[in-house]
């Protein structure tokens, strides 16, 4: 007898009953018989733990959870099943298996699921305040915890599809992505112990090491964020590097993200101004001035006073 039975008395009676039928008929042990019945009649839809796709019916672990102490209920359901899950297919009747064999399957099921605990799948929480289609295609700015940037970062989308993360600590665009904006629900549903989820693919990241978007021999000060103005739903960011006042306007030009940089200086800028660039493998980058040299857009002082960078995902 291989079965391990917890409720010895009732299971023993069951064993007696079932064994008479199955052993006589098949010559198999009780467990083998039950397993065979399961394989022939149930396995197409029921797995032990529902680990493999496709998942059709509830797992044996879940069925055991429901019917462990309700053998009669299990037999009754198997003979004339109804439907508990709206989207599931209808289970056919197992009346042809016979009550004794169903009882054997029940006992076998307890055995194979022993030690496995049923953990109900939590339904995925849906944001009750998710934006509708029209709202989510508008330009939008949201301050929230963003991954791979400082805790004081700003997410901006130009059209709900093409978006960027702007960091108020280093005062620069940190990365650009395409395919959506953010899902802030992981943060908003609780108290902020989560980043917003990015929707889409990040195709450009600014280099991590630099402290500021603009590099010049004389720019010694840490950039200082001053705020932003909203124009047509998109921001113009303002910051200063020492006595140099910088604005970065985020714009939508035919679905491309344009960053228009302007520098106003109280003192003359000497030498070139570099805008260090990240990996451009996936990026289609256009620049209105300067030239790309050694991983940076290099501009003369005059060019740096006003230039544009246009980002898109390389086709």
């Amino acid at each position: 007898m291989k079965m391990k039975i917890s409720n010895r008395t009732s299971k023993y009676k069951l064993w007696l009953r079932v064994s008479v039928v199955s052993v006589v008929v098949t010559g198999y042990s009780l467990a083998e018989t039950a397993k065979k019945i399961f394989e022939q009649n149930c396995m197409a839809c029921h797995q032990v733990e529902n680990k493999k796709e496709p998942i059709v019916g509830p797992s044996l672990v879940e069925i055991t959870h429901l019917y462990k102490k309700n053998l009669a209920g299990f037999v009754k359901w198997s003979n004339s099943p109804s439907k508990k899950r709206k989207d599931a297919i209808q289970m056919p009747s197992m009346a042809h298996v016979g009550n004794e064999n169903l009882e054997a399957v029940h006992a076998w099921m307890l055995d194979v699921t022993k030690g496995k605990k049923f953990v109900p799948k939590k339904p995925k929480k849906v944001d009750p305040y998710a934006l509708n289609q029209n709202e989510s295609s508008q330009p939008r700015l949201q301050r929230i915890f963003m991954s791979d940037s400082s805790p004081a970062s700003i997410a901006v989308t130009i059209d709900g599809q093409h978006s960027l993360c702007w960091d108020t600590v280093s005062c620069r665009m940190r990365y650009v992505w395409k395919g959506g904006f953010i899902d802030g629900y992981p943060y908003w549903e609780r108290n902020g112990n989560a980043f917003a989820t990015l929707i889409g693919e990040v195709y450009y990241r600014a280099p991590k090491e630099q402290e500021s978007s603009l590099v010049n021999e004389k720019f010694k000060d840490t950039p200082k964020f001053k705020g932003y103005k909203m124009v047509d739903g998109l921001p113009i960011f303002y910051y200063s590097i020492g006595s140099h006042h910088v604005s970065e306007a985020i714009m939508n030009r035919d679905g491309n993200i344009v960053i228009r940089v302007k520098i106003q200086s109280d003192e003359t800028i000497e030498g070139s101004v570099r805008y260090p660039l990240g990996d451009l493998v996936k990026t289609q980058l256009k620049h209105s001035a300067g030239k790309i040299e050694n991983g940076a857009l290099v501009l003369t002082a005059k060019e740096a006073a006003g230039f544009e960078l246009t980002f898109n995902l390389k086709k």
Partner: peptide, 26 residues
């Protein structure tokens, strides 16, 4: 006051919607 900043929010053109978010301390 937000998590990251003390911010002055103003409707500078007085059209009924704010347009300026000035960072007062960050």
């Amino acid at each position: 006051v937000q998590r990251s900043e003390l911010t002055r929010i103003s409707d500078t053109d007085k059209d009924g919607t704010a347009d300026s978010y000035e960072s007062l301390c960050n």
